[in-house]
């Protein structure tokens, strides 16, 4: 038995060529990718190696990155290209039976103004190139809802040392760690996103904030 794959070898280049034809020479960023998953299973009971399995992942990324502007009298490019970040993650969830697991391939990219805005923030870039699957939080109880945004604003207004102290007090960073205040604030925001869904968790979170600001 031989199973042969599922790779669309011409799909990516064809899509890229079509896009290029449609956009011509305009200043359009083109991002195309092709991912092929190959699984070959050969069973020969009569041989010393009765089962031969070959598994592979083939990924091709092509990008046409235009210049931000052409600013010489001759129309020659004299500047940087537009910004783009891309991330890719392949994850195999094994199952009890061979080959019964799930293969998940996730991609994400940011371009244009979004990429420009995050270019100076390494933490934001990491979030783009690392596709996360954190589920959206549930509803905030009515009794808590009016308190969440003011508390978030208060956290945003903390000094950098206060943010780091709060992140430590919440157990988000270790005592000897000193991440950037932006990262600490991001972790605190994510913690608040969990705490706001439950009255007791929110009360604990708020008490920790009060302690960090010396209330």
């Amino acid at each position: 038995m031989s199973l042969q794959p599922i790779t669309l070898r011409i799909a990516g280049p064809l899509a890229l060529a079509t896009t290029l034809a449609l956009t011509g020479c305009s200043h359009t960023l083109v991002f195309a990718e092709q991912t092929g998953f190959n699984l070959s299973v050969i069973v020969k009971p009569s041989e010393a190696t009765p089962l031969n399995v070959n598994l592979g992942l083939d990924r091709t990324v092509a990008s046409l990155v235009p210049p931000i502007h052409e600013n010489t009298p001759q129309g020659v490019v004299d500047g940087e290209g537009v910004n783009m970040f891309a991330g890719f993650a392949a994850h195999y969830d094994p199952a009890t039976q061979p080959f019964a697991g799930s293969l998940r391939i996730r991609t994400q990219f940011a371009s244009g103004q979004a990429a420009t805005m995050i270019a100076g923030d390494p933490n934001a870039v990491i979030r783009v190139v690392n596709v996360s699957d954190i589920p959206l939080g549930g509803l905030t109880p009515d009794s808590i809802r009016p308190q969440v945004l003011p508390l978030r604003r208060e956290i945003r207004g903390l000094s950098d040392p206060q943010k780091l102290r709060l992140a430590r007090d919440l157990g988000l960073i270790k005592p000897n760690e000193s991440p950037s205040p932006a990262l600490a604030e991001s972790l605190i925001g994510a913690k608040l996103d969990l705490a706001r869904q439950n009255e007791s968790d929110f009360a604990k979170f708020k008490a920790t904030v009060d302690k960090a600001v010396g209330r």
Partner: peptide, 24 residues
Amino acid sequence: MTINTRTAQGSLKLDELQQRIRDT
């Protein structure tokens, strides 16, 4: 600026998704 991504179930109705987005 910090970017956060979240995934939401495709089974949510429009008003449910809207309220959960507002809370988030």
